[in-house]
Design a protein around this nucleic acid. Sequence first.
DNA 1: GCCAACATACCGGGCGGTCGGTTGGTGACC
DNA 2: GGTCACCAACCGACCGCCCGGTATGTTGGC
Lengths: 203, 203
Amino acid sequence: MTEQDRPRVPRGQARDRIVAAATELFARLGYEATTTRQIVEAAQVTKGALYHWFSSKEELLTSIYRELLAEQTARLEAIAAADGPADVRLHRAVSDLFTHMDEHAEPLTVWARSMHLVAGEHAAAVRAERRRYQHLFQDLVEEGQKTGAFRPDVPASVITNTFLSSVVQIHRWFRSQGPLTRRELGEQMVSLFLDGVRVVPAG
Amino acid sequence: MTEQDRPRVPRGQARDRIVAAATELFARLGYEATTTRQIVEAAQVTKGALYHWFSSKEELLTSIYRELLAEQTARLEAIAAADGPADVRLHRAVSDLFTHMDEHAEPLTVWARSMHLVAGEHAAAVRAERRRYQHLFQDLVEEGQKTGAFRPDVPASVITNTFLSSVVQIHRWFRSQGPLTRRELGEQMVSLFLDGVRVVPAG
DNA sequence: GCCAACATACCGGGCGGTCGGTTGGTGACC
DNA sequence: GGTCACCAACCGACCGCCCGGTATGTTGGC
């Protein structure tokens, strides 16, 4: 009827709004429990816009992963390629990871909760990127083992997986309203990771 | 036609078969991606049996959790209440946890993947039990901190959550066909947890 | 005027859940 | 020790809803 029957979203914003809304909903409700209708409603667009930019709901999920992973991998790559001893670079990488998490808590939650649902052709690409990230991290650990900074009796893969697992799960218990900031928590977890909880190491 | 048109499942086995089939399917495909039809087909019963024993698909999921949690909590309770220094009991508790995981890898996978989907009235009960388990563990850590066995500069809640997170995530990367047994992995993770990865602790 | 960039109405399928019916073990009773 | 009523335990056809996805129309900037 009138020119502002409803406040329309300006052209060119639809894709970003869809990704933002989907990220928030996936993080809060989980991928499977979120419907495409909820997404377009939250983004204040229509299904036409969603399926104009994404070929399926799964591709929308995948694109959230890839964006996050690409950024994380690039950061880790830069730090790993820098100069200095391996343990220092590892410490720097972990600190940076927590900084990054501070800014991208939601997509990380999506990742942690729904990663295993990506299947088919999408899965291969995502898993490849994920392995690339994991290997960058693991290489740093191995380098630290070779130079004598880290203990050699536990495989680097076990060390890497153990640490990254505890990081990925932070969203399940950490509340930003709590006494700690995510950055402070990061420092404590790095310290735990490096030195453990025991005061006097067993001789 | 004949008396064995199809091999019927004997009476009284239906509930167990449903739980077993649901556990396997939930662990492999995820809760949301598993349909009630797949469950009853795998269990070789019908939907009548499923909804005779469970009021909903969600209650079936919840019952898997509660069974697992109840057993784990009972084990931890027994170990925590025993004699001996806190750090020894903690070590014992963790070793026992890995032994238990060895026997119940599937329901633990279900737990790790689909815990966040439990909502409504079911959620309260499950979360309460989960908190009870967590507190038992955390109390051991705090006791160790008071007796001087564990470092006091990191909150016991952070220590507990960090460690339990890495344990819960094991199913994502550990393959029982690999070089390590789950028991051996457990020992390595306990060692990492206690002493960290650094060879020479910072002065 | 033409093609992205959307909007809107619509669809087939499969999902969780239901409901009236059947079966078989169990115990009370003679 | 036969039989018979009874009620869990279980069967299976069925339902309505809502989901992901589509087909066609509309708009606006270059």
